[in-house]
């Protein structure tokens, strides 16, 4: 550093501005050694400030910047994660809606099918009831016919009995007996 100052003094001394500077410094009452001393002081001060103030402050600023960067990074990550979760949520909602629609359609189909089955069963039952009623009507008709026939037969026989009680003569009696005797003889 001192070599640099000396070099600077030599350059200044040999430059065109040197005589002008010398005059200015003499008017201010400053000697070269004083200027040199103050310059060295200044340099030492600057260097000391560099190491004691500037560098720590710079380091502090750098640390702070790093922290901020870190926070920004984390923030960005959180935003990305939030966006991802939002998307997943949207997808889930879509899926849920689709599922709900599907379930509604299935429920409607089931209801319709059950309704159709119920109607079909009711129709079958109605048919069965009608068939049963027809069958019972036929049976009842047959029964009435049979009862009527029985009644007519019974009445006819009773009438015949009454008539025959009065009408069977001795000759008829004899003929009946002869006829039966002949039949029994043939059956022997």
């Amino acid at each position: 550093m001192i070599a640099g100052i000396n070099l600077y003094y030599c350059i200044l001394k040999h430059s065109a501005a040197f005589p002008i500077c010398e005059n200015v410094f003499e008017s201010l009452g400053l000697g070269w050694w004083e200027i040199l001393f103050h310059t060295v002081n200044l340099i030492i001060l600057v260097v000391a400030l560099w190491f004691l103030l500037f560098k720590p402050i710079k380091k502090m600023i750098r640390n702070h910047k790093e922290k901020l960067d870190d926070v920004f990074q984390k923030n960005k990550k959180l935003e990305e994660e939030t966006a991802k979760i939002k998307n997943e949520y949207s997808e889930l909602m879509e899926d849920a809606k689709k599922e709900a629609v599907k379930i509604s359609l299935e429920a409607a189909e089931n209801a319709k099918r059950k309704s159709d089955e119920t109607i079909e069963n009711a129709n079958k039952q109605a048919q069965n009831i009608i068939e049963e009623a027809k069958r019972e009507t036929r049976v009842e008709q047959e029964r009435l016919k049979s009862d009527f026939k029985d009644a007519v037969g019974k009445l006819s026989v009773e009438i015949a009995e009454k008539v025959l009680e009065r009408e069977v003569s001795e000759d008829d009696n004899r003929d009946i007996i002869d006829k039966c005797l002949k039949e029994w003889e043939d059956d022997k």
Binding site: V152, G153, L164, V168, N173, I177, L181
Partner: peptide, 27 residues
């Protein structure tokens, strides 16, 4: 009219009543 004869376990029905009963049964 007619007769009803019982010979042991056998019955020989030549009566009018028996005939009418047969008719009634067949009706």
């Amino acid at each position: 009219g007619g007769v009803l004869i019982k010979d042991g376990e056998k019955y020989y029905d030549a009566s009018v009543r028996g005939r009418l009963a047969t008719v009634k049964h067949e009706l």
